[in-house]
Design a protein around this nucleic acid. Structure first.
Lengths: 215, 215
DNA sequence: GTCTATATAGCGATAGAC
DNA sequence: GTCTATCGCTATATAGAC
């Protein structure tokens, strides 16, 4: 598409183009989650990016388009961070802990919390964007867990009739009331020790519910 | 305070006062949760209430005060609706179902969902308001469940070391992924049959995790 | 392609008539 | 106590100079 090797006309003038575009996008990725869609103006984004407002409009059609790009990029950057795959051959309880502990850290991450807030506050506005968020976030994690549970069932370590549903239960327990409290701004994220204790408790419940042998 | 029996001066002119006040408050209780704090203007509230904008300002100091009153009233109207007390003498599984089923209905109630959305989107704005919401909502339900679990433990029907934590787990499982999907606007609330099945599954998990005998 | 300056519109909150 | 009309401010989006 883009001819980039012509000496005379090296594509009519776009050297700093991408730099400014990413500056704008990065500013939007910080401001939108932290202050909400209505809470941040195009001026604020332009100022934070160190460019003029019209430069923002030259790269993104309007505010909604910039918001969509920012959310999409946030999803992409937050998730692959760590896709919870436990070491093979570990006892089930340990494997579950290795999956659960980074998940709790992710859920308490300030950026993830802000992203949740802004997606919830924009519910019903842009369905395609919601699906992007959900598929890149919750859905991806759930699928990872589902395949782990299928393997554990095949090996006889767990008795899960419906791995997809069991995955939902597991992560809902992990989020717990703590996530809700942080989401509404009532609590600070828990300490590392509190997270450890919480994860251990949840893993215990999950095992009592789905382990083949009775405790 | 208010002398209401003087024939000559029946309190200098306040007959329709409360009527308009409630009209304004009811309009705010509908509009704020559905369109968000920034999404609704004082003009819109005045128009929906059928009064002038200055009438709104005569009853509520500013937009924040009106928002606070609306949220507080929403909490009061949504909760006492049904404070989940099961019939005494019922089997534990049945009692849990009687607690859980109306809770799921409440969580899927459009007004409750909208209230969640607006509280989450306003996180960090007004801490006192957040506490009003949390105490009137989640906290009240959790305390009810906690006392039920204490009684069940005393009777030997359940083996819950920490009733408060077990209550959290129970309701987090009940909310499940479905609540999240509705919250972000990805799914419609589930059908009555789906809710039944979900509640039965969660009660089963809870019992396998906390019942004294193994399944 | 980028910036300063501006058009247009809507917001929260207020002043004065009845 | 209630309403019409308006101020002051800020937002999105655009027009013209370099």
């Amino acid at each position: 598409m883009n001819s980039s090797a012509l000496p005379s006309t090296p594509a009519p003038g776009r050297p700093k183009d991408m730099e400014k575009r990413t500056a704008v996008l990065e500013a939007a990725m910080v401001l939108f989650p932290s202050r909400g869609y209505d809470g941040v103006s195009m001026d604020a984004i332009a100022q934070a990016a160190g460019v003029s407002k019209l430069t923002v409009y030259s790269h993104f059609a309007d505010k909604e388009a910039l918001f969509g790009a920012a959310v999409t990029e946030c999803c992409a950057q937050l998730l692959p961070h760590q896709l919870f795959v436990p070491d093979p051959g570990l006892p089930v309880a340990e494997a579950l802990f290795q999956i659960a502990r980074p998940f709790v850290d992710l859920m308490m991450d300030e950026r993830a919390v802000s992203l949740h807030r802004v997606m919830i506050s924009q519910a019903g506005q842009d369905r395609r964007l919601t699906e992007i968020f959900f598929c890149a976030g919750p859905r991806a994690i759930l699928l990872e867990m589902e395949s782990f549970l299928q393997e554990a069932r095949r090996s006889g370590y767990l008795r899960v009739a419906d791995p997809a549903r069991a995955s939902e239960h597991f992560f809902c327990l992990l989020k717990g009331l703590g996530h809700m409290r942080v989401l509404v701004g009532l609590s600070e994220p828990p300490s590392s020790e509190q997270r450890d204790a919480h994860v251990r408790e949840v893993v215990g419940i999950f095992l009592r519910a789905f382990a083949p042998e009775a405790l």
